[in-house]
């Protein structure tokens, strides 16, 4: 990802780019923060864009980082895949300082990533994006029959649920027996 005034990503914390110069009234220079996901790729995001995330916004407020401290300590989100974090960062940048429209056309189109995206967005507490994502999930089944919904939303049948439950019980029983045996061995 190329460096812009709004965001950048690199293997190591990037040099902060110069804040855009305004021809009009002098503005307070925008502060930037850094985040990385599971792939350790660091994304540089403006504070304005990060305001969408209640979680990151809270972290920024609580930590009170200076620009240098922020650069040295990117926020780690090890539970979020790099490409998902990239999508989230892109969305935040696109919607920085703008009111979010009722229908968002900038949503990620890859349906196969939607599940991870929903979890990430929920974790990062980005309320508007979460609403859009949930709507996307709902739209997947619009006008579908029960059989089609079962397939699209991957709903196991009752028989599959029962089999899975039996399997889980069996596994739990085995684990309990193993623990008992181990405890008895320790006692000897």
């Amino acid at each position: 990802m190329s460096s812009t005034e709004q965001g950048t990503s690199s293997a190591a914390p990037a040099e902060p780019t110069t804040a855009p110069e305004s021809a009009a009234a002098p503005e307070v220079p925008e502060s930037f923060y850094y985040v990385h996901g599971k792939d350790k790729v660091v994304h540089k995001v403006s504070a304005g864009a990060l305001q969408h995330s209640a979680l990151i916004h809270g972290m920024i407020s609580n930590l009170g980082y200076t620009e240098e401290q922020a650069k040295a300590n990117p926020f780690p989100f090890e539970n979020i895949d790099g490409d998902i974090l990239q999508m989230v960062v892109d969305w935040c940048n696109q919607h920085k300082g703008k009111p979010t429209p009722p229908e968002d056309t900038n949503l990620p189109k890859q349906k196969e990533k939607l599940f991870d995206l929903v979890l990430a967005v929920n974790y990062l507490e980005i309320k508007e994006l979460l609403t859009y994502c949930c709507k996307q999930v709902a739209m997947m089944v619009k006008g579908k029959s029960p059989e089609e919904i079962r397939e699209i939303w991957m709903i196991p049948t009752d028989a599959e649920d029962e089999a899975a439950e039996k399997e889980a019980k069996k596994r739990a029983g085995k684990e309990a027996a193993g623990e008992t045996a181990a405890a008895a061995g320790d006692a000897k």
């Binding site: 939607l114 929903v118 991957m154 709903i155």
Partner: peptide
């Protein structure tokens, strides 16, 4: 459709 979403894992 070929879309899939593991709804119950949410």
């Amino acid at each position: 459709t070929d879309q899939r979403f593991p709804f119950l894992r949410l």
